[in-house]
């Protein structure tokens, strides 16, 4: 089965007004989604990217330019990623569509991973 990468784009939000119950509910949804992927044997890997810090690198005429990101240019950042295996793009879309990230206003970029070796 090919592997797919789900890049979770999100807008940085302020959660300071979230109640304990609200946060509990968010986690429960993600855990349930992840569990359903795991139970189909399609979970590969997931990682959260740190919110703070982040750099943008580019080469200019004056040489290497390093700016602080990730918020410098985009209103949106990648919060983290999930790698899953799926039968096909259709199947991968089906699995990604269930991700609570979409419900909370985030965007998912879905890409097939080129097999190495």
């Amino acid at each position: 089965m090919p592997n797919y990468m789900l890049l979770l784009h999100e807008q940085p939000s302020d959660f300071s007004q979230y109640s304990a119950e609200d946060m509990q509910a968010v986690i429960a949804e993600y855990v349930a989604w992840r569990h359903s992927i795991e139970s189909q044997g399609k979970f590969v890997h997931a990682e959260k990217l740190k919110d703070e810090g982040g750099k943008h690198l580019s080469m200019t005429d004056a040489g290497l330019r390093v700016t602080d990101g990730p918020y410098a240019e985009a209103a949106e950042v990648i919060g983290g990623y999930f790698a899953i295996s799926a039968d096909s793009y259709d199947d991968a879309v089906k699995l990604a569509a269930e991700c609570p990230h979409l419900k909370y206003g985030g965007r998912i970029e879905l890409r097939e991973i080129e097999p190495t070796g």
């Binding site: 959660f15 300071s16 979230y18 304990a20 946060m23 968010v26 986690i27 993600y30 855990v31 992840r34 997931a46 990682e47 959260k48 919110d51 919060g79 983290g80 999930f82 609570p100």
Partner: peptide, 12 residues
Amino acid sequence: MITAMKRWPFSG
């Protein structure tokens, strides 16, 4: 709790 909410979806 916010850290947990952001991290646990990825880390379990």
